[in-house]
């Protein structure tokens, strides 16, 4: 296993930066991909966001002070990139309304070649897409990725209590949505 401190040291060293960067991408690309994918749902958009995330890391690694773990930092950048992407799309295409954006994301998912879920999973994704931003993030990170609340606290910069409450509300809303859909 690669030592994180050593990896950060190599990333900050011009002589070893490129090799260390490649190792870091190999280590985190899949986890970050799935994290982003669950937020934006579309594969092509996820690919763009993931590349932008790593490009930001490449450019700003010197300013990384290692107060939080590398993994936390990467998750935070990926989350911010994903939310920025959705907000820009909302403003440019849907005049700033959440509902139209959510409808578009779900419709897009139905036509997505890289969505292999059944009808129940599609309904679940629709329910998740209709959640408020924070609840959607917390639900995905907890439900799919099993990320601990302590880690989530650092990534989303929110208290553990607030995160637990967000997850609880998200589960309730999803259950209600699915019941109503029958």
């Amino acid at each position: 296993m690669i030592d994180e401190k050593q990896l950060i040291g190599e990333l900050k060293n011009e002589a070893t930066k490129q090799t260390a960067f490649r190792s870091m991408v190999g280590l985190y690309k899949e986890r970050l991909y799935w994290h982003v994918r669950k937020i934006v749902l579309d594969h092509e958009d996820t690919d763009d966001i993931l590349q932008n995330t790593f490009i930001k890391v490449w450019r700003n690694i010197d300013s990384f002070r290692a107060e939080s773990g590398l993994y936390t930092w990467l998750y935070r950048i990926a989350t911010n990139e994903s939310l920025t992407f959705l907000n820009q799309k909302k403003k440019k295409t849907f005049g700033g309304t959440d509902e139209e954006l959510n409808d578009y994301l779900v419709e897009n998912l139905q036509a997505d070649l890289y969505f292999n879920g059944d009808e129940v999973q599609l309904k679940l994704q629709e329910a998740i897409a209709r959640l408020p931003e924070k609840q959607r993030l917390v639900f995905n990170m907890r439900y799919y990725d099993d990320i601990k609340y302590q880690d989530m606290e650092k990534i989303l910069e929110t208290s553990e209590g607030a995160l637990k409450a967000s997850y609880h509300h998200a589960v309730k809303k999803i259950s209600d949505f699915l019941k109503n859909q029958g």
Binding site: R22, V25, G26, K29, E30, Y33, W34, R37, K38, L41, H43, D47, L50, Q51, F54, I55, Y114, F115, N116, G117, D118, Q121, L122, L124, Q125, Y143, Y144
Partner: peptide, 19 residues
């Protein structure tokens, strides 16, 4: 809890080179 999403074949294998 299985993810219903998929990726194109060879996507992760070629990611570093494209990046």
């Amino acid at each position: 809890k299985n993810s219903p999403f998929d990726v194109p074949k060879g996507y992760f294998e070629t990611f570093e080179d494209r990046l």
